[in-house]
Every structure is written in C-alpha cells, then in structure tokens.
Nucleic acid binder design. Sequence first.
DNA 1: AAGATCCGGAACTCCACAGTATCGTATAGA
DNA 2: TCTATACGATACTGTGGAGTTCCGGATCTT
Lengths: 226, 226
Amino acid sequence: MTQLEPAGAAETTAAETKLGRKRDHTRDPEILAAALEVLAETGFDGMTIDMVATRAKAGKATLYRRWPSKNELVIDAVACMKQGDLDQASLPDTGTLRGDFVAMIKPRSIEDGEKKMQIMAGLMSMLSATPEMADAANNAIVKPRAAANRFLMQRAIDRGEISPECDIDTLCLVTPSMAAYRTLIERKPVDRDFLITLIDGVLLPALGLRGDTAPAGRGKVAPPAS
Amino acid sequence: MTQLEPAGAAETTAAETKLGRKRDHTRDPEILAAALEVLAETGFDGMTIDMVATRAKAGKATLYRRWPSKNELVIDAVACMKQGDLDQASLPDTGTLRGDFVAMIKPRSIEDGEKKMQIMAGLMSMLSATPEMADAANNAIVKPRAAANRFLMQRAIDRGEISPECDIDTLCLVTPSMAAYRTLIERKPVDRDFLITLIDGVLLPALGLRGDTAPAGRGKVAPPAS
DNA sequence: AAGATCCGGAACTCCACAGTATCGTATAGA
DNA sequence: TCTATACGATACTGTGGAGTTCCGGATCTT
C-alpha cells in the first residue's frame, strides 16, 4: 500500500531525520470519534470534512495531513471503532443458554447497538463500491456480536444443553441480522421486548429448547394473538 | 398532495382545456425503470438525473416536467416497483412446509431478490432522513416476501403440520433479514445452498420440524466440522 | 536562539451535479 | 393551417463540498 522511499543515499530512514514539532497523535482517536459521530448522524454522503474538523476542534488541513482522503478517514474510523464489552471473558455465564442470552440484554448494550446501526446505515451506500469498507464494517459491527452468540451456544453444546448438530454458525447471525432490519428499514426500536421475542420465538426453538408445542404452563410470552 | 386550481370562472376543470401535444404517459414506466436500474448500480447519491434521462433515452427537462425533484422521482420509482410472482395464487402448494419453502427457490426469484437488495443498499443512506422512502422501500421490497412466508406457514398451521403457538410474524422475517445481511454486508451470494441452510438450520427447527437431535441417518447437511 | 514542522483557522480553487432555460422538432386540437 | 404544448438535446446558472494553500502561533530539535 505505502511503499517508502527507495531512494539511494538517505542517511537513515529519512523518516527518522525529521525536525520540528512532532505530530500530536493523541488527537487521532478524538478525530476518529468525531468522524463516527457525524457519520452516524448524517451518513457518509451527507458528512463533510468540515463537520468532522469542527466537531473535533481541529483544522481541516490537520485531517488531510493524517488521512489522504475522506474515504480513508472513514475506513480508519470504522476499523478503529472500539467494541463494547463482548470479550469472551466479560460474557455472562448463568448456567443456561436462555439465561445467558437474556443477560446480554443491557441498556448499555442496546444503546451501543443502536449507534452502530446508525453508522452501518450511513455506510451502506458505499459498501458496494468499496469492498474494504464492507469488510471494516462487518468486522467492527456485526462479527463481534455474532462471535459472542456463537460462544454462548458452543458452551451450551459443550455442557450438553443443546445438540451438537445445531447450525450455530448460521444461528449466531439471526439476532444481528434481524436487529439491523428492524432498525434500518422498519425504524422500530430494538428494545428488550423485541430481543426476548427473538430469543423465545426463533433462537431457542431452533436449538430444540422449549418453544416446541409448549406443553401447558405459561412458557410462552406472546398470547395466541387473535 | 396536489390540490387542483380552486380558481373561480374556469369553464370546465381547466385541466380539460389544455391544448397542444399531450404528455406521453406511456414513457413514465420506462423512466421509472431506468431510475431503478441506475439506483441499483450507483446508489442514490451517486445517481444523477442525467444518467436516468440518458438511460431512458429522454431529455432531462422531460423528467423535471413530470417529477418536481430527484427525491420524488426516486420515491415514485420505488413505490411503483413491480413485485415478483409473490401473489398468494402463484405460491407453491406441495403439501409440506419444507416442500413449499424449497419450491420458492427459483433462479428467477433469486435474481429478482438480488436486484431488490442492490436497490435497498442504494436507498439506505436516505432512509433516516426520509421516512416516506423507508416505508416505500419496506412495502415494495421486504413486506411482499415476508407476507408470502407468513402465508405458507399459516397454511401449515391450518393443516396441523406445525403448532399454532409458533411466532410466524417474527419467523417470516428471518429469511429476508438474513438474505439482506448476506448480500449487503457479507457480499456473498444468496444462492440455493444458503437458502436451504436457512430453511433446515433455522426455520424448520424453530417451527418444531426435524432438525432436533437428528436421530441417526444423514439428515444433516454439514459435517461435524473438525 | 534558529530552523523546521505541527497546529487551528480561513480563504481559495476546482468540479460535479441539481435545477432552469432555450433550441429546433414533433404532435395534438381548433 | 395555425397555435399551443411536449419532446430530446444542449447550454447555462448556482451551490456545495473535496482538497489545497496560506497564515500567525506553538512546539520540537540542534
């Protein structure tokens, strides 16, 4: 991508020899965060470099000293996006799969997801034209959540709660996909009720847990719905 | 939306009295079709009125005589989008739910779906800013397919194949949502294998049909995976 | 201290596109 | 035939944003 000066008689690396004030790299994260905010609010095409610079209290020239173009700035911003608390270590472990899924529903997590979806919507228009952007978005937004779901389900397989025949690679994408549709196209909130509906109406039944013909008790959430 | 001349002393409707060459309304569908093509290829922001006019072999002024702005042209194009063959009358009826789902996988249908997804991607950037566009896209692209799925599942309930407790209102959105994710973000093809995986790995298990612990035979598609 | 480079800020160039106006031509009604 | 309008084509205007350049001031190295 960036081949560095193959020139002949440079003393060291020519990058070592630089004089003057050093670039303040502590500002990079602030600028990238500002870019993500504007991106979520206006979308990629509505977003201007001036907006980002103003929001970050920086000069437009400063941004262009660090990123060669708007495209690269946005790709970097998405790629450097910090995950929520989706590390395996911080995932819940309640003993049952349903308990784990429900424990993942936290206001913090919902809010985080909504913002990520706004960012995804803003990026959507350029995903077709810029595959590297599609990869960055997928890696930063969807994959971590899918991996968390897969981890919980694999653990349920390991302890014998669900069958190892289950297609968890497909099922771990159900929640992210349907939450995206609900946010981006239906424009309805991805709230606790919706997520519980997904867990009890799709995920657990597909894994062979409850949901099947519901013997008697109040095991179901939704009423017969006229 | 369009209030017509409340003027006082018009002979008839004043729209009747018009002289000269009449507008050729047979061209409207061609222009809207051209708009959809360009939209799918370049996205809303990359699309220019000139592109649409050129593609439709029409003058730019002609487009502006019929639609007041680019926004309204696109909204109209999406709203007037013709459905594929998703009428209840033309849906398959094989006697089993799996048979019906599989019978809906046709090259024609897949191709149609891919194009609609491209259109959806192109619209995504303006969905937040223009709710009426979000509704138009939802009604034209996703809802018909969800309705077809719901119809097939309701029929399976009626004939006793699956339990009436199943949350078919949620489940009918699984395929459209996950196909959208696969096309738009993962950029993988929504082919027959993928759709079969959804049917056998998510939908049917969630409805209480097969998929559960697979007694013995080679009922599963994927091997145990290392 | 001196020179080099960074900073935020603002003015600037350049270009693409939405929307308008004008042209010669084609087609409708009177 | 005459007039009014729609047509495709092309030229034009206005605006907005990407990317560049310049400035005075700050910060680093030597």
